[in-house]
């Protein structure tokens, strides 16, 4: 009965809340608008927006030694999560069943490595968040909720793949649904909003001829 709900109505609700929530959130930000910039540009805003979006995937060389932990943990977590989300065999099959689009999944050993890297990254980031005076000062309930929910989703996902037990699959999908409902109203929105954020800064500096 619970499995039917999770695979049926709960999933539908989570999907709609996620989709509508994300779109509503983005629209509510963009409908406010920005004032026009009347200054005479020195460089291209568009080129700046694109370049900064790409450039910020890499840390500035001047910052590497001071932020090594956040940078390495951040890469481990995000790359591992990306691999798990889009290349874990059950996810590939699920996406294919839902959309008709399929691609090659990663082998089991790669899944294990991706999961380990991702867990390591997430745990390091969370420990840093709790231990470091700066992140401890900045962090609020939303930061911790986002970390804990993501951790639970990853944990149940790994358990479900390692142990081919239907109950674990349902539990994983249920936690994913909770995360999807939480996502649009939380800091997890950075997964979408980092693009306009980088673009605005890149465009602003680009007009001034500065590589940001």
């Amino acid at each position: 009965m619970f499995a039917q709900l999770v695979d049926g109505i709960f999933w539908d609700i989570a999907l709609w809340v996620f989709a509508i929530g994300v779109v509503w959130n983005i629209l509510s930000i963009f409908r406010v608008g920005n004032k026009p910039d009347y200054s005479e540009p020195r460089g291209s805003a568009v080129a700046g927006a694109v370049a900064t979006n790409l450039r910020r995937f890499m840390p500035r060389s001047e910052m590497v030694s001071r932020t090594r932990l956040q940078v390495i943990a951040g890469y481990l977590f995000h790359l591992g999560l990306f691999a798990l989300l889009f290349f874990a065999a059950p996810h590939v099959l699920f996406i294919e069943a839902q959309t008709g689009l399929g691609w090659t999944s990663m082998p089991y050993w790669a899944f294990i490595i991706a999961a380990q890297l991702s867990f390591t990254g997430l745990l390091l980031l969370w420990v840093h968040r709790v231990m470091h005076p700066v992140t401890r000062l900045l962090s609020d309930m939303d930061d911790h909720m986002a970390s804990i929910l993501t951790f639970i989703v990853m944990l149940t996902g790994c358990m479900a793949l390692v142990e081919a037990f239907e109950g674990l699959r349902v539990l994983h999908r249920f936690t994913v649904e909770i995360l999807m409902v939480y996502f649009p109203f939380s800091r997890l929105m950075h997964a979408f909003m980092f693009i306009p954020s980088r673009a605005f800064t890149g465009a602003w500096f680009g007009r001034r001829g500065v590589k940001a």
């Binding site: 930000i29 470091h132 992140t135 929105m189 950075h190 909003m193 306009p196 954020s197 605005f200």
Partner: peptide, 14 residues
């Protein structure tokens, strides 16, 4: 929009 995009994307990484 620029400010709201910034505030929506900050992950408090420090």
């Amino acid at each position: 929009t620029r400010v709201m995009s910034y505030l929506s994307s900050c992950v408090h990484c420090g």
